[in-house]
Design a protein around this nucleic acid. Structure first.
Lengths: 232, 232
DNA sequence: AATTATTGTCATAAAGTGAGACAATAGAAT
DNA sequence: ATTCTATTGTCTCACTTTATGACAATAATT
């Protein structure tokens, strides 16, 4: 048998996560860069032999963002044998002075469970993992070339986010607890990549009966102050 | 190391498939029963070490139904360690006179990728696999107690089918190529488990511009003959 | 007090849906 | 041949939802 058996993790199975955040203007995702390789990738990881998939992903996202109880949706499994890239993994291990024999299992084929997360941009303090130089926010429309099929995973995540998700879940996770109607509209405009009609949007949101109205927000601007809302 | 290493399949990973069919009245799914165990389960299987997930599922569905190019949607991964049931697997292996040591990997923990398939009931000739007595259609509302978390997988599949799927995909895969408006309505009523208004349904379907009208169908009944339609 | 920019709400038109009416018609009954 | 029956295709009218523009309210500046 080649190499040393991997005792800790389930072999051939990984997760990757597209972590969405909203800075008030653009929709962004977190991308990490591996030491001395120029390789960019999605945050991801492996599942321990006796760990639930959900727990593995939650811990991975928490480690990199510092946020607990993140909204996560497991949206697709990527299972082609060709998607794996042992050469890239080799480069990463070498660049990090890792024992190649001990980590040989990492250069095997991987089937990955694609997730996306929605988090409040303000609350995040991104931390690179032990193999990575950096982890940073990138505008969804200027994501660099990523390793393996990670660009495909990002595109699919965005597609699913656009199609499948309810108003409440999007707003609740990408915005602070209290927000203005305009901010809520901007989140939707960023996700859908199109402008929405202000009056229709406002009427729609109010009619859904998911918002609680609070005090007004006085920003010191020379116009009527908007109400703050939160989700019920 | 316990047992003999599994050389053929990716360990700890399986797929399961909820195969939906429509007999003209009820929505049904295929369920198999293992020899001499009284254990019912969804059709499922493993992924070969160098096989794509999609290929594995396609082959599994084809073997059991005889149908190629089935519509498949991979809808959720079930990844809790507790979902596995080594004792049940043990029973199945014993009842089939299988070598326990050689198949020990089957009694390990499995993460499974849940799929559902939509197929034309008429075209199917269900065939049990080598571990199973039988494979049969069951009405969606009288599914027996299944092993492991398979009932949960069925429920989730139905939920996803109800929520996420377009008119065209449902009709196209659960009906013959040509069908009447009434048949199309009955598929929707079976899936949604509610009656629909005939005139509204007809107007909606025609307005979607996905149907092609063909000749009339003369069934020998004493009333106006309906048109046949197909999807564009 | 007038001005500016933006907000919350209303008015009207346009599009979509629910519910029933009705004529058309394939075959059976007479 | 005519009438009858069950079902289909389409239309109408009321009702609901959505689009679009108008307008008054208002926080801070001029």
């Amino acid at each position: 048998m080649k190499g040393i058996k991997n005792k800790k993790f389930i072999p051939n199975l990984s997760y990757d996560c597209v972590i969405f955040g909203f800075n008030g203007i653009n929709l962004k995702i977190l991308i990490l860069e591996y030491h001395n390789t120029g390789l960019f990738a999605l945050p991801g990881g492996f599942i321990k032999k006796n760990q639930s998939l959900q727990d593995a992903v939650n811990k991975g996202v928490e480690e990199r963002t510092g946020i607990k109880n993140v909204f996560l949706d497991q949206f697709q499994v990527f299972g082609k044998p060709e998607r794996s890239d042992p050469a890239a993994m080799h480069r990463i291990l070498v660049a990090n002075d890792k024992n190649l024999e001990k980590n040989e299992w990492m250069m095997d084929r991987f089937i990955t469970v694609g997730h996306y997360a929605l988090i409040n941009y303000e609350d995040v303090n991104p931390k690179p993992d032990h193999l990575s130089d950096s982890i940073d926010w990138y505008d969804i429309d200027s994501v660099p070339k990523l390793m393996m099929d990670h660009n495909e995973i990002v595109n699919k995540a965005l597609e699913v986010l656009r199609n499948n998700i309810s108003e409440k879940i999007i707003g609740m996770n990408l915005l602070p607890i209290k927000f203005t109607m305009k901010q809520l509209q901007q989140v939707f405009e960023a996700i859908l990549d199109q402008t929405l009609r202000r009056t229709s949007f406002q009427r729609k949101m109010l009619s859904l009966d998911i918002l609680q109205r609070h005090e007004k927000l006085f920003e010191g601007k020379a116009h009527k102050a908007p109400y703050l809302y939160s989700f019920k």
